[in-house]
Amino acid sequence: MAVSIPLPVLLGLIVGGLGGTLAALHAIGWSALARLEGPDAARLRFALDYPDDTPQDVWVASDGSTALLSLEGGCVGLVCVLGDRFTVRRLGARSVGSIRLDSETIVLAFDDVGFPRAVVPLAESPARVAWAARLASCVSPARAS
């Protein structure tokens, strides 16, 4: 008769292994979020995904989690933290489903199942007005109306 692992033992192995691995990762500090250490870091990260663009103005959140980059033609580059890595998008016309301005943040919703939402921690400031206007130009007309 073939050797097999009883189901309760298999489940225990999976649950225990999974829990132990995650606990170890957290304990050694590998849950820490990545940080953009300034505009140059944001430019470099953006260029990895979009090497043909030349960003002009760059804004980086004080916590290093997010960056906005102004691109030619009114487009906006977005760099967002995802764990210890980043996710990058080039936002042009119709790229943004909707935009919501809260007192501390700009919340962008995308028609992208793999990246549904970005929260830009940009509080009330002159810079926020300019970036909000740029981002508003990327909102799909159907949603803006």
Binding site: H26, D84, R85
Partner: peptide, 12 residues
């Protein structure tokens, strides 16, 4: 290099 949430997603 591992990351906690990435690893959780992979294992699940």
């Amino acid at each position: 290099r591992y990351e906690t949430r990435d690893t959780l997603t992979s294992l699940l």
